[in-house]
Design a protein around this nucleic acid. Structure first.
Length: 234
DNA sequence: TGGACTCGCCCGCTTACATCA
DNA sequence: GTTGATGTAAGCGGGCGAGTC
């Protein structure tokens, strides 16, 4: 893990805080700290979302009447999500999470993963309906299902890249070997050419002729077929 | 009809955390 | 118990297509 960017990214997204505070909640410094902590601490991926969360996550985000619509769409979506997260996080501050730790219980359960895997095998992208259904089935937020599919696609692509890379590596090795073999063959032919027995073992001149100047071997000019050439290059 | 804007989705990169050797 | 490697959930920025005005 690189530590070089730590100055830019602490344990919570600054952009969310900055933009949301600008556009929605003019928070004091301590307010922002509280928001930042609760934003991370309260998230429990295994906590089944409330019905309102399920709706808000997808449908509520892009309300055309929202003041967020004045911002870029992408940003408004994320900020709304973040706001949603913070709001629900505060509400979800349970006893077990009531500590200084944040982002606990990050892992999905085996059952959840299995269902997601099965769904991914059927189709590696989800339409909104499928996403909502899957989220409801698994007791996750739609955003979590979406993220899981994104990460899963990325893993698949990475694996495929590794496989392709291995294949190309083997191709390269084979070509190198073939190249070495051909070079060796050329050397043998050159040595044969220089030997006095070379012309004695040649076929009669009626089938093949070699131009003494350009070292091309060709069939007689009367033949209709294209002239095969053996070039003994440098 | 073309351009500006918004929205939703995706991808690539990155970080934080969990788990394991 | 500590540590480094690895896996993975999630955040962020940016690109792109579709819809709307």
């Amino acid at each position: 893990m690189g530590d070089t960017d730590l100055g830019l990214s602490l344990s919570f997204p600054h952009h969310h805080l900055r933009t949301t505070s600008q556009h929605h909640h003019p928070l004091t410094s301590s307010d922002r700290n509280y928001e930042a902590r609760s934003f991370l601490r309260g998230i429990d991926v295994n906590r089944p979302p409330s019905a309102s969360e399920e709706c808000e996550d997808d449908a509520g985000v892009s309300s055309p009447n929202s003041t967020l619509s004045t911002i870029s769409g992408k940003r408004s979506e994320r900020e709304a999500n973040a706001e949603d997260e913070r709001t629900s996080s505060r509400g979800a501050m349970s006893d077990e999470d009531d500590g200084e730790n944040c982002r606990k219980k990050l892992r999905l359960s085996k059952d959840q993963s299995a269902v997601l895997e099965e769904s991914f095998r059927e189709h590696n992208t989800l339409n909104p309906k499928q996403k909502l259904a899957l989220a409801k089935q698994l007791g996750l937020r739609p955003r979590q299902v979406e993220v899981w599919f994104q990460n899963r696609r990325a893993r698949t692509k990475l694996k495929q890249t590794e496989v392709d890379c291995e294949f190309l590596k083997r191709c390269c090795e084979n070509l190198t070997e073939e190249n070495r073999r051909l070079h060796k063959e050329v050397q043998q032919l050159r040595a044969l050419k220089l030997s006095p027995h070379f012309f004695m073992h040649m076929s009669p001149p009626t089938t093949l002729t070699m131009c003494p100047s350009c070292e091309h071997v060709s069939v007689p000019s009367t033949a209709a077929a294209p002239t095969p050439r053996i070039v003994l290059g440098p």
